[in-house]
Every structure is written in structure tokens, then in C-alpha cells.
Computed example of a mutant assay.
Amino acid sequence: METSSPIIEGKIGKGFTRWPLWIGYGAAGWSLLYGVVQLYWLLGGAGYPFKRGEMDLFAAMVTYLPSKACGLIFVILCLLGTVIGIAMQKTWRGVLRRWLILAFAWCFAAALLLFIPDISLIAVMAYAFLFKFAFNWIMLNQIICIIGAMLWILTAVAYQRRTRDACEYCGRTENGNTFLLVRWGKWLTIIAALAPIPYALTRFAWALNIPLGVDPQFFHDFSKVNSMAQITEWVFGSICVGGGILTLGLIQKWGEIFPDWFPFIGGKRVPIMLAVVPASIIAIAVTAAGFVFTFNFFAVIFHFMPADTLLLSQIWGTIGPMIFWVPWGVALGLAAIAYYYRRRGKCTHCGRGNQN
């Protein structure tokens, strides 16, 4: 049943609000264009972004592959993505099995989110609070890949809904089953709020000249070299605590209605996307960086990666707290989705509502 307003239809047409109609083509088009770029790099073109360089220990996972092998893998994946993206839009169930199509879509999206980005994006966000800004082609390429991952995630969601006879726009079915994420939203939000605390405690300790998790001499030398060290640690620790408090808004009343003491907007409803979009962006950046930190932490601890004695003695304080970042990012992303599902209204396309 189609219940969308004719006025809205006239203004927006088949735009973003009707994303299931074109999202598969979007994912296929992105794959085709990025595959062409990867082929250009594979043939020796300039601008190849997957180099470890000065990042070394904090480099993206993809940088551990030889450039030729990496380029060939990406060209093949993007070629497959071009074909499968169109197949998902057309719902060609007889060409490939449903589970195989979905497996490719989710795995391709996960690879783009976890293996391409390094710690640059979360670093840029954090240092922006210190009024330090840096941007380059490597970060732009990471953003392009994250956009591609989002296209593939939405394509997978639309295809999954379509093939199980649910509404492509809201995911609701005739039997009105409640989404599992809504049931777990409270616990996911609490996990997301608590996960950055170990990192914050470490930063606050360093700001107070307590060498928590690192050698005292190393800490002393680092503080002498970096005159802004204490201010930086206070800021980074405060960002984590403040972010944790804001995260709790996903399950609190003030996360749905602005408190009365807010000027001009007090008492008004919080726009859903005002909470969902920032939380999702942070979740992506934190998860990607956390994946890099976690991989390198265990690689050094278990001697899969060469490391000197100095690095081994400092790793528990410098990188150790960041192993909580993957659960932080994943929980935050899922909590944001749960918040969206809980607050959304009646679907304007299928007419279903009153249930999540």
C-alpha cells in the first residue's frame, strides 16, 4: 500500500526518500568508478594512497598487502560489485543464491570500513578541538571508501528486506515483529557510553603527570618534547567523557525532547537525525581506528610484528586502552540504529506503524 503524500512526491520524486529504488545502482556505479581508479593505480598511475609511510604502527590494514596484489584484489571486487549491485537491484534470485549475494555485499562493506581507513579520521576529529586541522588525499580516499561502504550496506538492507517480503523503506512486515535492536538498545547504549572510559582515565592520569601504563622516563621525555601534552590529554579525556554522557541521550528523555532550559528550542522534540548522524559518523571513525589499534596491539604482544623493547614497555598505556574502541564503535552504531527504530513514526510507504 502506498500512502506517501502527493505534495511530497512532487517535490522529492524518486530522490533520497525513495532510496531503495536506486541504491543498488548507486553501489554498482561506485564500484565501477572506484574499480577504474584502482586499475589506473595497478597499471602504475600516480596517487596510490595505500602506503604505510610515517604511520607505520597505525597504518591501515590494506597497507600490509603489496601494491600490485592490493590493486588486483580491488579491481576484481569492484568488477564483481558492479554486476552484483545491479543484480541486487533487479532481485535476480535465480542468478545467484540470496545468501551468497548478501555475503558479498556485507563483506565488501566491512572490508571498506575496516581495512581501508587508518587512525587519521578519528585523529582529525579529536585535534579539531585543539583547533588543529589537517586533510590530504589519503583521508579523502578513506572517505570515498566509507561512502562506498554505506552504499553497499544500504543496498544489502534493501535487498534483504525485499527478498523477505518486508517493506523496503522501513523493514516492517505484516506480522509486526519487533526489531531485536530496539530490545537491546538500552544495553548497547550503556556499553557505548562506558567503553571509552579506560582511554579517558589513561589520558587524565597523564594530564596529572601519572605515567599510567608507560615507563616514567618515557613519559618524562615525551612531556618535555611536547609542550602541549597536558592540555592535549585533558582535552582528549574530556571528549571521551563528554561523548559518553551524550551517548546516554539515546535512551534518556532529554535525547528526545530538548530540556526546557535550552534557549529557543527548549521543550521541542529532538530531530532524529540530529542524534543518529553524528553518532554514526563517530561510530565509523572509532571502529576503523580501533580495528587498527587492536590488530597492532596483539601483533606486538604476541610478536607477530617486530617491535623494540621500548615499544613493548609502553604499549599497554599507549595502545592498550584503544582495544575497547571496536566494541565502543560497534555498540554506538547499533545504539544509534536502535534509537532511530524506536523513535521513527508510521511508514509513509507501507502505512505500517505502531510497531518497530
Rank of each mutant, 00 (worst) to 15 (best):
W184Q: 06
I7F: 14
T91F: 00
I281P: 07
G53W: 06
A59H: 10
S4P: 03
N141I: 13
L334V: 08
I122M: 09
L112G: 00
M61I: 05
E2T: 11
L43H: 04
I281H: 04
F115T: 13
S280G: 14
W30D: 00
F129D: 04
F115H: 00
A105E: 03
L79G: 15
I284V: 15
L21K: 08
K68N: 03
A126I: 04
V36P: 01
Q355T: 10
L79S: 09
C347W: 07
K51M: 06
I257C: 09
A331S: 15
F135M: 09
P211C: 03
R52L: 09
G176Y: 04
G249Y: 10
N226F: 13
R343Y: 11
G329Y: 11
Y48T: 03
Q38A: 15
M139K: 15
W234M: 10
W234R: 04
M88Q: 12
F108P: 00
R98Y: 07
P306I: 11
G148H: 00
L181T: 11
L114R: 03
N356S: 15
A59T: 09
T202A: 10
A336R: 08
L42Q: 04
G44D: 02
V124N: 06
G351D: 05
A111Q: 06
A27F: 10
I319W: 07
T155E: 07
E54P: 02
T318A: 09
M273P: 01
F295G: 00
I122D: 00
A275M: 13
M273K: 10
Y340A: 06
L112V: 02
P321L: 12
Q160P: 01
A59M: 03
V75I: 10
I245Y: 12
T91Q: 12
L32I: 14
G81H: 02
I245N: 07
G237A: 14
C70W: 11
M305L: 12
V277Q: 02
L33W: 06
K253F: 10
R97L: 07
K14A: 14
